[in-house]
Design a protein around this nucleic acid. Structure first.
Lengths: 206, 206, 206, 206
DNA sequence: AATGAATGAGCGTTCATTCAT
DNA sequence: TATGAATGAACGCTCATTCAT
């Protein structure tokens, strides 16, 4: 989140100034990403956040509830950003490129969230898994609609289903959490530019 | 794997005829994929495999060891298949296309393995995580070398690092376990053809 | 409840009009009977009564204190009723019969109290258990004195200790909470008449 | 049980010689009676029995399961004894008297069981509560059938429903756990004789 | 080669009570 | 009078692993 223009996502700090739920959320994000949801005990969590178990269970009904709160935060942020880019002014190709690059950039700035998102989905209750999947679908559909619009206009090739293009692209994006190293030379912006370019190129009419 | 030409991957059956370690391995693959490594107890495992705990600990030193055995099996299979396609006769573009399509097809035929592979890597001991990553890197390098070869020959565009292309492609492939549904209409072969085509298209010189 | 003749058994309502302590008492009686003292959390209690924890702890020093208040209410009511019948005019046999029938009737009308009384006695502090037992003893003694009077007068057989007769009778009465179903056909009055008749019959001189 | 002819009910000892489940059962009976089911922690239980938690959960699936095992043992014993007396030779009146006296005697010899039985029934799962109630009903019915037989034969008065007689009698018996003190002068045999005599007397035709 | 009873540390969660406001 | 966030100890239970047989 360091260089992002987005102020509303709290930096994952353990700052003593923030509220108890906020502290728990940011500490949980860090620990769940570091060692996994199941390997993180509630005791470690509250110790790291500097609160007691009782305080945690005052705000979250379960460890699962805490995990779900992370999902909600991520889903809301991603949808908001996509909508901003998709609804902006300008030619379709450029809007798609900007959105595609931004999701990479944002993902890299919130790698912990991404790692948790795909690694721990199966730890949520079935109902909550469905809720997350439903939100993801809406997100994909918004992205797909841009590609379909380009296909109708003859801007993009239409011999490959838009759905497959989207799935391939987001597969790559979601997998970033597995290998991207923030300490390396490759910035999120540069990676986003490359990924978006490969996407746009792969869509060029033959 | 059913319709594949590859006979060496054991069908994930619980067949009473197979050996104890084989039964454990195939049952573990199914259960770890269904409910996750941590949510699967050793007791459930041995019950499902129809053996006792003592028998399991006779063949595997730990639950972690059983997980690692799954990784070894997957890594060996994937490397073998890639090598076959990469070392085959024929033009580079066709070899790359075939290898890229095959990894999708094979992944779809072994979805349980893929799901476990990326979801449970952090459950292995650090040493074993490193061993797995090392093997993955060799695998990626073999694939990347084909792209680099094409870039040197002018067959592929060279304004995007081969490494980024590979990472993007395999990111999409590895993510299949999160959404691909074997019950749908989309076959592994069809999906592989589309993914490979998008890859080849994205590499066309501008 | 305090000084009234028959309507003194409070309807177990959660009526918004009553005072906070009254509401807590009637809700506690219902919940302790329904799920047991230990299975009822203070949070559930105050939620059901529509007050906050702070309010409850303002009126009752502890959950135990709330339980004891129920005991006090029951003990006072039962003693008052017994005294009324025992001290009334009329032949001893009729007074005993009336008192014996009334305790059944009253018990059936306040089943929740009875259930709590015997099921949760061990949850009170030792001191309070002693206080309750002391009150019960006084109650039994008043009843026993009627039987002893009848034995001295030759009205009742005296080859069985009055104490044993009393214990047997009240055992049966106290156990009503375990099986009596208010929805059935058997009214409290009818049951009281039968129980009292069996008691009087068993006391007839041989 | 000390002086009883019944050998199959294990003395509630903590004897080191008995098996782990037996030790747990007898210790649980003692502790549940002493301080109540909810006030007895699993840790206290296993410490008192000299085993570990793991061992307990190897034999009993839950604390509830341990409680239910106590119920099963009591139900089986009581039914067996009643059947013996009811099916014996001799006149009905004598068989009823013997059975009525024996249940008091046996109850007094197993006071812990009785106390638990009625105090902790609501701690069992609803299914198990139903199972216990069903068994109790069968027990009561066997006893009631003796009274009905006597009523048909004119041996007993028939102006009071047999069901009410049974309920009253067993109410008194079940309540023994609340007050009977084994240290007093009153023996189980003497008490049983008195209770049975009161029962028979109350059934004399008018 | 295989059993399964037993271990013991750790888990997520509950809850009566306190106290600053 | 009343609030409700926070405490902290205890709870029932799980589970990978060991080991005598």
């Amino acid at each position: 989140m360091a260089d992002s223009a987005e102020p509303s996502v709290p930096a994952a700090s353990g700052g003593a100034a923030s509220s108890v739920p906020d502290r728990l959320l940011s500490v949980a994000t860090r620990l769940f990403a570091e060692r996994g949801f199941e390997r993180t005990s509630v005791q470690e969590l509250v110790d790291a956040a500097g609160v007691t178990k009782g305080a945690m269970y005052h705000y979250f009904t379960s460890k699962d509830d805490l995990l779900f709160a992370i999902y909600e935060r991520v889903l809301a942020m991603q949808m908001r950003r996509l909508t901003e880019f998709a609804d902006a002014e300008g030619p379709l190709g450029e809007r798609l490129r900007a959105a595609a690059a931004d999701v990479v950039h944002t993902t890299v700035d919130n790698l912990d969230d991404t790692l948790i998102f795909f690694r721990s989905l199966h730890m949520l209750s079935p109902d909550r898994q469905n809720e997350v999947r439903k939100e993801r679908r809406k997100y994909h559909e918004r992205f797909r609609s841009m590609i379909e619009e380009g296909q109708r206009e003859g801007l993009f090739r239409d011999d490959v289903p838009a759905d497959i293009v989207v799935t391939q692209y987001f597969g790559a994006v979601h997998h970033l959490g597995m290998w991207y190293n923030a300490d390396g030379e490759l910035t999120g912006a540069a990676l986003g530019a490359h990924y978006a370019d490969l996407l746009l190129t792969s869509l060029r009419p033959k």
